[in-house]
Design a binder for these strands. Structure first.
Lengths: 244, 244
DNA sequence: CGAGGGTTTGAAGTGCATCAAATAGTGTGG
DNA sequence: CCACACTATTTGATGCACTTCAAACCCTCG
């Protein structure tokens, strides 16, 4: 398979473009540029003029904003199959956050104006985009609730649950997808708090932490621990990663 | 003007329907039912099957969810011109939150299936819906940041700023739109915390609180106080109420 | 092996929540 | 127009969760 059809395949696998007609996807693929980024590489910064948006081939990209007094708010940590930067379309073509690789990654960059044209001329895509954003919004909605109602160990527990195959209630091993530092940031807590909260989670639920992998004897016990402080029943399927 | 054309006018003034063609709006207006609700009236509850969505004629409606252990997360407090319940379309026709009047209010109820049909057949509306949800999502995005980065007095200050005419930097009087209790809930803090934080804001910025109206000598000073802990420049126009 | 970042631990401080009670405000019926 | 009932708001005292600062440890990679 050549580079171009690889890109085509990646695009057609993303939620945003799934089921779209091939002429549109081909046009996209033709304008695509593949970028390799080292850890720490900044793809764009908040409020910068936006010309392109991105699809992740592999790796992890942190989306964040910085305040005047130096604090950082992590919007999301995205991975393979996720798109980012496309919502600049709705923000006067300014990026609504900054994007930085937290692992060495490979991303596809695409012109925003193609999306714009498509919204004006392809109702099927517009509808698909609408559903995709609505899903995003729903996910966010739940995150607001989690942040305000769950305590630190529960938030970690909830995060772990979303990494498991939720249909399996029994024993399983979870691999943390990236540094604990970044998980802490994504969950809106300090690295120290994360460390201590994970320890508490260990004594409360009997999970075993070995570096970046975590052994769980009973997934259901985890869900009892986290989901009592949540308005959604487990499995909270809608909050799973966009790519799924 | 008869009831029907009053409804038509209300609809055409909401962000979601602004600029839509009149045949669509007329069809909507014909299926509309006006409801008067007393304070405390519950319009629907979370996860209930959704048949209709709502537009507020006047009053205040609280959107919220409750957790298994009894805590309540306030999603939003909406008012005149706002729509709610329409996102059930993207949630398998289940309401994603509960809705309750916090003041006696008047709302228009409309069948969800009309929206659904329109999305399938009216690209212009679909596009408008897309932009409307994207704006909502953006607003939410900022609220996540605020909740995680600003402290209680800053959050209140930010809330007050959004009630002012942001082009006027000088003296002004702000009227709180609803009970302090509900403002506290919307900002994710306890009533007691709200009271104390407002007092601190008073000593820090020199505002004067008299019941539900607040005198401000210098709007710019308020923005310095709140916006240094925010990644958005003042005036943060995009976070203003949906209706504006 | 040594440097540097990630992670853990300890000690101390801060902010918000909670519980309890006083006070202010509002609407009611008399 | 007043007294009462009820709710909203404020205040005080206390506790807990998370943060902050500091230092140790650990792991990986040149």
């Amino acid at each position: 398979m050549n580079e171009n059809s690889l890109i085509y395949k990646t695009l057609s696998d993303t939620p945003l473009f799934k089921g779209q007609d091939s002429s549109f996807l081909s046009r996209m693929a033709e304008s695509a540029v593949t970028l390799r980024c080292e850890k720490g590489k900044v793809l764009f910064v908040h409020d910068e003029q936006a010309e392109r948006f991105y699809v992740i081939r592999h790796g992890w990209i942190k989306l964040f904003r910085e305040t005047l007094d130096g604090a950082q708010a992590v919007i999301d940590i995205t991975t393979t199959g996720d798109t980012f930067g496309e919502t600049a379309l709705f923000q006067n073509n300014l990026y609504p956050y900054s994007a930085e690789a937290v692992e060495s990654s490979e991303v596809i960059s695409l012109p925003l104006h193609l999306l714009n044209t498509e919204i004006d001329t392809n109702p099927q895509f517009t509808k698909s985009f609408l559903f995709s954003i609505a899903k995003e919004k729903d996910r966010q909605d739940k995150e607001i609730e989690h942040a305000s109602i769950q305590n630190a160990p529960q938030r970690i527990c909830c995060f772990l649950l979303r990494l498991t195959d939720q249909s399996n209630k029994g024993k399983t091993i979870i691999h943390l997808p990236y540094d604990k530092m970044f998980i802490a940031a994504k969950l809106g807590m300090q690295a120290e708090t994360f460390s201590r909260a994970l320890k508490k989670l260990k004594t409360d639920t009997g999970i075993r932490v070995k570096g970046s992998s975590i052994e769980v004897d009973n997934v259901e016990q985890l869900s009892n621990y986290a989901c009592q402080a949540c308005s959604f029943e487990f499995p909270c399927k809608d909050i799973k990663r966009k790519a799924s």
